[in-house]
Each structure stands twice: as structure tokens, then as C-alpha cells.
């Protein structure tokens, strides 16, 4: 079953297209990572899926319905980000109690156990929490709600390394026990890639890739060696990234489409082949310009 289905989805803020002609579907009970640079359109997309924002053109279906102002989508979806606001009149303990009223699958036991584990104070109010603890509290709500569509937008911002690790493990364990469709946006791909099944990579509101993590891991290879030899060997193969090292060495990232005999040949003429991390692949694919930050300085 398709939980989310977008066709040529476009959202404009004034003249700027935040989401541009996006087409993809998310199957039921998968964990998908939404990855992209700052301002790529991740949050706008997630808010449209959650039914918070109208789209301008194209089509979006969540649980086979238009999500905007939709009761079915609202009841089955939770959207967690760091700008969630809760009533200042209630304490954290009361908020946790109240949250249960809104979600049919609410796991009270899990909520209380996580709350205790992360040493949150039930008498404190949400506005007075530190950034990290706010994220932690929101994350508890997001997990315990057990919504068929669970969306986390940058859930770990402000969390320390230990809490982030605990959160990802909690998410995975709870997902195994209660499979559901999860979308997770994050800058820290390396941290989340092992628990993801698929990755949706966007740039300037457009889709660059929507593949499994396993495929992404083998998407590209890095080649290091003498620049002239690399150029010769590559001929007109498309480069994802080029970095010059010193005067005559280069590191080039290309798509992993070479046969093993071609790679063997490359090794024999002294080039080194290396794996490219998913984080680097995404960074290269979404880089602002082909030359990278060095170009800004070299051209003054």
C-alpha cells in the first residue's frame, strides 16, 4: 500500500519554488530518510504531507486522500519538529497525560518509561526546557503516539550525542515492535543511515534520488591518482566531484558504473579506488556548485 503519493507536487512562496515538481511514493511500513541541504525544501514537503500547508500545483495523496484539512490524515499522522508548541498552562506530566487523548494508539507505558529514562521533570513546563530536552520531549510524544504515519523533522537538533544514539535505537526498537511508515529528516545521514530503508534526496525542491540505502552505498566510487592519468582514464565519464590535491594529483568521484575489468585496469595504472560514504555522496550531489567552497576563495 502507498501511504504517501506525490505527483508533480509544487509549492511556491511568492516567486520562489520551495518544492518543485516532486514525484514519488512512500510504501507502507518503511523508514525513509529525507535528506537535503539547508533550504532544500524538506520542511515544506513534510508540512504538506502532514496537511499543514496547501500545495500550489500537482497532486498529493496521504492515505489516498488530500491531506490538507483532512481529519483522517490528521488522526493517523504525527508531525514532530522543534517548533512544536504546547499549552504553557500545563506541566510536562500533564502534557503527557493529555497527549494520550489525541492518539488512539497512544502507548502510555512507553511514554512514561522514556520520560523517566531521559530524566525529565514532570513538574516543569515545556517553554522552560532546554533546546535538547525540548527535542527529547517531542520525540517521546512522536514515538508513543504510534501513528501509522510518523514524521520527524530534524528530531535530534540540540540533543547531545548520547541522547541522539538512544533516540535512534528507541525508534528502531519501537518500529520493529510496531511497524509503521516513518519519515525522518536529518542533516546527519551517517548517524541514521543504518536504520533507514530508503533515502529521498532533494535539492532546490527537486528530487535527486529516491533509492534504498544499500543502493546509495554503492552509488559512487572515489578515484585518487595522477591528474593526467585520471583524466585520460575517465575520458568523458561524468564526474560528481573533483578535488585537486597539490599540483598533479586528483580525487574524483564518479558513478559506480564501471565493470570490474575497467576498475582493474585503473588500479594497474596506479589509481586508488575507494568507497564514498553516503554522507559524501549526498553532499557532492547537492553541492552549491561543482567546485565547492574552494572556488569561492580562489576567485576572490
Amino acid at each position: 500500500m502507498k501511504v504517501v503519493e506525490c505527483k508533480n507536487l509544487t509549492k511556491q512562496y511568492g516567486r520562489v519554488k520551495a518544492v518543485n515538481d516532486l514525484t514519488f511514493t512512500l510504501a507502507e511500513n518503511k523508514i525513509t530518510g529525507l535528506v537535503g541541504r539547508n533550504g532544500a525544501g524538506k520542511t515544506t514537503l513534510l508540512k504538506m504531507i502532514a496537511g499543514y500547508l496547501h500545495h500550489n500545483s500537482g497532486n498529493i495523496q496521504v492515505f489516498s486522500e488530500n491531506p490538507f484539512n483532512n481529519l483522517k490524515v490528521s488522526a493517523n499522522t504525527i508531525f514532530i519538529d522543534n517548533s512544536m508548541s504546547f499549552s504553557p498552562a500545563l506541566t510536562l506530566g500533564q502534557l503527557l497525560e493529555t497527549a494520550g487523548e489525541f492518539y488512539v494508539n497512544w502507548d502510555k507505558n512507553l511514554a512514561n518509561r522514556l520520560f523517566k529514562y531521559f530524566s525529565l521533570n514532570p513538574d516543569q513546563s515545556h517553554v522552560n526546557l532546554s533546546k535538547g530536552n525540548k527535542s527529547t520531549f517531542n520525540m517521546i510524544i512522536g514515538l508513543a503516539a504510534h501513528c501509522p504515519l510518523t514524521i520527524f523533522d530534524e528530531p535530534t537538533s540540540g540533543m547531545d550525542a548520547g541522547t541522539r544514539k538512544d533516540f535512534y535505537r528507541a525508534l528502531l526498537k519501537d518500529y520493529i515492535a510496531h511497524p509503521r511508515t516513518i519519515i525522518l529528516s536529518s542533516h546527519l545521514l551517517e548517524e541514521i543511515e543504518d536504520i533507514l530503508e530508503d533515502i529521498l534526496l532533494i535539492k532546490n525542491g527537486e528530487k535527486l534520488l529516491h533509492i534504498s540505502v544499500a543502493e546509495l552505498k554503492e552509488y559512487a566510487i572515489g578515484i585518487t591518482g595522477k591528474t593526467d592519468r585520471i583524466n585520460q582514464w575517465l575520458s568523458n565519464r561524468e564526474r560528481i566531484f573533483t578535488h585537486e590535491i597539490g599540483n598533479d594529483d586528483s580525487y574524483v568521484v564518479i558513478k559506480n558504473e564501471c565493470s570490474s575489468s575497467e576498475l582493474e585496469e585503473a588500479r594497474e595504472i596506479g589509481m586508488r579506488i575507494s568507497q564514498v560514504s553516503t554522507e559524501d555522496i549526498c553532499m557532492h550531489l547537492t553541492s552549491k556548485s561543482k567546485g565547492g567552497i574552494d572556488h569561492v576563495f580562489s576567485r576572490g
Binding site: L172, I176, I195, S212, A214
Partner: peptide, 17 residues
């Protein structure tokens, strides 16, 4: 696949593969 996913902290689909 679920036991492996939990043991190694990976997505169950990866373990299934």
C-alpha cells in the same frame, strides 16, 4: 530479520537482505 536488526542496530530490510 528482526532479531538481527535489533542486535546490530540496522533496518530489518537490510537484515533480511
Amino acid at each position: 530479520q528482526y532479531q538481527l536488526a535489533e542486535m546490530f542496530n540496522i533496518n530489518p530490510a537490510t537484515a533480511a537482505k
